[in-house]
């Protein structure tokens, strides 16, 4: 059987804080398998160890106990990162380079063939919707644009595994919808994506599987569909629902031994409202 994209086995990560070496356990015995061509979400409150887990996966931090493998190669080896792209949280780049130069630099570092760099950079800029700002210095970018250029540098060398730490932080709803689309497109290309985010609605929309962490431990893990559906309840959507009809329905349900538990007016999400009124006419930075 092929090795999973990421395998984390009984990972523990302690940080030493203070001179005397007090320890803070940021990740506590986490074991996860993330399969090939899967979008995996890591959820949890602030400080629960999501970013730390990702850094250990990438070999940026050494695990205290346990370990990680990427496609079967231990993270401690540099070659495990041959096919990985990473967006750190709150990224901040060489501010004196233009967006295009920055992407070229990362492409070169990743040994993309020299001939392919230019078209690839243009393509990636298009994907994250930064074409118009490509020749401005990164120092002048807004927070959301930084986030986008960060995603661009994570995918510029066409990696198989992409790790995104809060890809939509600071990005407007149109942008996050675009990023969600991008993630789905990447999945369609056969990539594996590990992301963490606090925008649960969005995670719900793109992730195949999620793990919820709390204080360093995984408290819940599984397929999104399985976790979210309440299998013992169903809902009806009705256009107009007069009082009389309600009584009839209740009576009909009672015949089958079922019960109407409540009637609510469905609301569209604020996201949808925003998108409707700002026009999802593609990214609109200038």
């Amino acid at each position: 059987m092929e090795a999973p994209a990421i395998r984390i086995h009984s990972l523990v990560k302690d940080f030493r804080i203070g001179l005397r070496g007090w320890k803070l356990r940021a990740v506590d015995d986490v074991s996860l398998d993330i399969h090939d061509n899967e979008v995996y979400g890591l959820l949890g409150p602030n400080g629960c160890g999501k970013s730390t887990t990702m850094k250990v996966v990438l070999g940026l931090l050494e695990p205290t106990v346990g370990g990680c493998e990427i496609y079967g190669v231990p993270s401690s080896q540099v070659k495990s990162r041959l096919n990985v792209g990473f967006l750190p949280e709150a990224p901040y780049f060489y501010r004196y380079l233009t967006g295009r130069e920055l992407l070229k630099f990362y492409a070169k570092v990743c040994s993309v063939e020299p001939g392919k760099i230019k078209p690839r950079v243009t393509e990636v800029l298009e994907m994250v919707g930064l074409t118009e700002a490509a020749d401005r210095r990164v120092g002048t970018y807004s927070k959301g644009m930084l986030q986008r250029i960060g995603i661009a540098q994570a995918i510029v060398h066409d990696p198989k595994l992409i790790i995104l730490d809060e890809p939509t932080a600071g990005v407007d709803p149109i942008g996050s919808a675009a990023i969600a689309d991008l993630i789905r497109a990447l999945k369609a290309q056969g990539k594996t994506i590990l992301l963490c985010s606090h925008l649960l609605a969005q995670v719900e929309g793109v992730c195949d599987r999620v793990a919820i962490m709390d204080r360093g431990k995984v408290v819940l893990e599984g397929k999104v569909d399985d976790l979210l559906s309440k299998h013992d309840q169903q809902s009806l959507l009705v256009d107009t629902f007069p009082e009389a009809a309600r009584a009839d329905v209740e009576a009909a349900l009672a015949k089958h031994g079922a019960k109407l538990t409540g009637v609510t007016t469905p609301r569209i999400s604020l996201d949808d409202l925003f998108l409707k009124h700002t026009g999802k006419g593609g990214p609109k930075q200038s």
Binding site: L58, G59, V78, R81, V84, F86, P88, P91, Y106, Q153
Partner: peptide, 14 residues
């Protein structure tokens, strides 16, 4: 400080 080292070291760079 700018975490650019993270982006570089997360690439196949020793």
């Amino acid at each position: 400080e700018n975490r650019t080292a993270l982006t570089i070291l997360a690439k196949p760079v020793h």
